[in-house]
Nucleic acid binder design. Structure first.
Length: 772
DNA sequence: CTGCGTTGTCATCGC
DNA sequence: TGGCGATGACAACGC
């Protein structure tokens, strides 16, 4: 019976995960909250560390929460303060770094089968929190609930030392960075929350004892955690209003949703990141999955000598991969829109390929960031066709205001403060749960730019067949290993052997490796011609293009250089064809009577052929010195040499011609070499520019995504704050009559809507005036 | 035999 | 003005 129950539970969880992956919010929180009240503070997620000290002090001072844990007033008070702080802080623009996430994305399908690294990391993190949480019984937990949010932080895996309340800006920035890493690593606190939830369920089933959580979660629980990862991320879709029922439950759901919102906010993570660091770094060796899978999936980022947090390098790697991915997109615009590079987790928010299994391309961000399903549907028609638009699950949170909150928010100047008018469409157009993406236009523009980039890459001789091959290679779990394996060769061949300076900096070497090698292979295959490579290396030429191998064959063939490269002597041509027959006969042919038809004659012919026309002429004219001297001596020495001999006018003329032709010959060789170098440099410059363009495009998309996420957070927070406001009679304010005004000094004011509209107009006018 | 790459040479330009 | 380097154009050769 127990096993059956577990099976059903896991099946439900998997189904929940699946639903969450396609954008349907399954409110497990509600279920668990009602079923397991003590889990609430576990599930809810840590409160913002940004306000941790503040809340801690407040709670310690007032102790109101301990007296009335369900007191709406106090709850509203604390929550509102936290929300306001978040709203004030949301104006900071954050660019998520997503490289680690990409691997979580790819690992999810496997993670459902066998435990993978992030799940292990989560296990550790969870265990660290479990030590605090699971030890006490329910009664103790109840007291923890009364102790405040800061306790929740510790419960939820925040093992880092508490941060003092007066954070400097640098501290906050650092927190922000760490948070982004934290989120990118997929170890958001919401993951932890769900781990607790499931763990609690398991405890109820007596499938686990209280003391073995750490081992269990780090070991055999890896599978479940791999799935938890997605579900937890999904819980980050904090569209509140899931909790039906009484006011108390509503309040709880509000707080819960706010905490989930915090999980996606760049604040309050300072105490959590070290735990993630430990979890990530320690989880790698503790993996229980097959080594092959582990290496193929994790080695580029999380294993080996590479630091797991060398984000710059990882980012460069992923960039290069994405460049390859970008270049291989050569079909249609729609395909590009729907088939974003798998290395780009954020782009996979819209990138469920029509023929791709749903559970393979789902990004963690889709699962963890609130409201992503809105945009998801915008970009993925197939997902749109699925029963995603579950209005009941996506409705706003406050029952009394649920029907008007969308319009309320969209028309408030709070939103207008954050987003320019053209981006502030929010929910004006659609009354359903699906909010239009105000950045859709910009995103589309970015996508179009990317498409144009692809076209450019295709126009420049990109081989679609090899692109598809690379795509397959990359899609097969070993995407980064592909990159890593290609990078050294391309580096050694392109960057390392480059003799001429280029605009490509060292920073571009890593990022350009994949694409450069790709383009190299796209034409001929640079590594197959060993002779070519040797020649290139011997001459120190810029030997990274396949075409260059051909150029190099005709490269500098100065006799002195050829003598240094004996194997090249047979490469060069022998242009003795213009020699006058008379000269040949008179000068070179030995007396036929004394020579046998044998090796000597052949040798003579060979030597004869080795001589240039001018040498033959010089010999014919009995020039008393070598052509090498004629050509290479400086002018003064050359004149001296001429003065030493009594030469006829014909001899002098021939000597001058020989000198002229010899110098012109070398000049021609130098000229051709320079021409070749110029072409190669231009080619590389073009590649660099293409890389830069692709990088900038990706950054643009990232910025836009971040902006959209911020907007969603603001929207949710606004709804939370506004929904919690009560007038003197205890009734909620009508969103049609009031709006929240985000003041310049950081305060948030509740003002009548008429006034808010006026200020919104002013805000709109100001940018226009500035433009003028 | 033809096409292509390579090389040498010439004419020309600019320094 | 001549020398010299650079370079386009052409031709010849070899593969």
């Amino acid at each position: 019976m127990l096993s059956l129950k577990k099976y059903l539970t896991e099946g439900l969880l998997q189904f929940t995960i699946l639903l969450s992956l396609i954008g349907v919010r399954v409110d497990v929180d509600t279920y668990l909250t009602s079923q397991l009240p003590p889990l609430r503070e576990i599930i809810l997620g840590p409160s913002s560390a940004y306000t941790q000290t503040q809340f801690h002090n407040l709670r310690n001072t007032l102790d109101g929460y301990g007296i009335h844990p369900k007191s709406i007033d106090l709850d509203n008070y604390f929550t509102a303060r936290r929300l306001l702080s978040q709203v004030r802080a949301l104006d900071r623009f954050q660019v998520p770094t997503t490289e680690v996430n990409a691997w979580l994305v790819h690992r999810d399908p496997e993670g459902s089968v066998s435990g993978t690294q992030p799940s292990s990391g989560l296990a550790l993190e969870s265990s660290s929190g479990l030590q605090d949480v699971t030890g006490p019984d329910n009664g103790v937990r109840e007291s923890e609930t009364e102790q405040g949010f800061s306790e929740d932080l510790e419960d939820l895996g925040a093992v880092a030392p508490p941060v003092s309340g007066d954070l400097t800006k640098e501290d906050i920035d650092l927190i922000d960075i760490l948070w982004r890493q934290d989120i990118d690593l997929g170890a958001g606190r919401e993951v932890f929350d769900y781990s607790h939830r499931q763990k609690e369920q398991d405890v109820d089933k007596e499938l686990r004892d209280g003391g073995e959580q750490a081992d269990t979660w780090a070991g055999e629980g890896a599978e479940a955690l791999a799935r938890d990862l997605l579900v937890d991320g999904e819980t980050g879709e904090s569209f509140p209003a899931q909790v039906p029922g009484g006011e108390d439950q509503t309040a709880l759901s509000l707080e819960e949703c706010l905490r989930l919102l915090e999980a996606t906010c760049p604040f309050g993570e300072n105490a959590e990141f070290p735990a993630n660091v430990a979890s990530i770094t320690e989880a790698v060796p503790s993996e229980s999955e097959p080594p092959a899978l582990q290496n193929s999936l994790l080695s580029p980022l999380l294993t080996g000598t590479e630091s797991p947090f060398d984000l710059e390098q990882q980012w460069q790697d992923l960039m290069s991969i994405m460049e390859m991915q970008a270049m291989e997109v050569n079909t249609s615009a729609s395909e590009i829109l729907y088939n974003a590079p798998p290395g780009d987790p954020l782009s996979t928010n819209y990138s469920l390929a029509p023929n791709t299994p749903i559970n393979q391309n789902v990004s963690l961000h889709q699962a963890s960031l609130g409201g992503c399903s809105q945009d998801f549907s915008l970009f993925s028609p197939e997902v749109e066709n699925l029963p995603v638009a579950n209005s009941s699950t996506l409705l706003p949170l406050v029952p009394s205001n649920s029907t008007s909150l969308n319009s309320t928010f969209s028309s408030t100047n709070l939103a207008g403060l954050f987003f320019p008018p053209q981006l502030n469409g929010t929910a004006n157009d659609t009354a359903g749960p699906e909010l239009p993406d105000p950045l859709g236009g910009l995103l589309d523009e970015a996508m179009l730019d990317e498409i144009s980039l692809m076209d450019l890459a295709i126009e420049e001789g990109f081989n679609p067949v090899q692109a598809s091959q690379l795509e397959e290679e990359f899609d097969s779990d070993s995407g980064l290993s592909l990159d890593s394996s290609h990078s050294p060769s391309s580096l050694s061949s392109s960057e390392g052997s480059s003799s001429s300076s280029s605009s490509s900096s060292s920073s571009s070497s890593a990022s350009s490796s994949a694409s450069s090698s790709f383009s190299e292979e796209g034409a001929v295959g640079y590594s197959s011609d060993s002779e070519t490579l040797d020649l290139e290396e011997a001459e120190g030429a810029v030997g990274y293009q396949p075409e260059y191998s051909k150029f190099c064959r005709m490269s500098y063939q100065d006799p002195s250089q050829l003598s240094c490269l004996p194997y090249l002597e047979h490469v060069g041509h022998n242009h003795t064809y213009n020699m006058a027959p008379s000269a040949l006969d008179s000068a070179d042919l030995p007396p036929p009577s004394t020579l046998k038809k044998g090796s000597k004659e052949k040798q003579a012919d060979f030597l004869d052929k080795q001589m240039s026309r001018d040498e033959h002429r010089a010999r014919a004219m009995k020039i008393p010195f070598t052509n090498d001297k004629i050509i290479n001596l400086p002018v003064e020495e050359f004149n001296e040499l001429l003065s030493k001999y009594q030469l006829s006018e014909a001899q002098l003329s021939l000597i001058r011609d020989i000198r002229r032709r010899g110098k012109n010959k070398m000049a021609a060789q130098n000229c051709r070499k320079r021409k070749l170098d110029t072409i190669l440099n231009l080619e590389r410059d073009v590649e660099d520019l293409q890389r830069d363009k692709a990088r900038l495009l990706r950054e643009k998309v990232e910025f836009l995504r971040s902006l959209r996420q911020m907007k969603q957070k603001v929207q949710s927070l606004y709804q939370e704050v506004f929904g919690r406001l009560r007038d003197e009679n205890g009734r909620p304010y009508s969103p049609s009559q009031y709006a929240l005004q985000y003041a310049g000094d950081g305060s948030v004011l509740l003002i009548p809507r008429t006034m808010a509209d006026q200020q919104a107009r002013r805000q709109e006018r100001k940018p226009k005036d500035r433009r003028k």
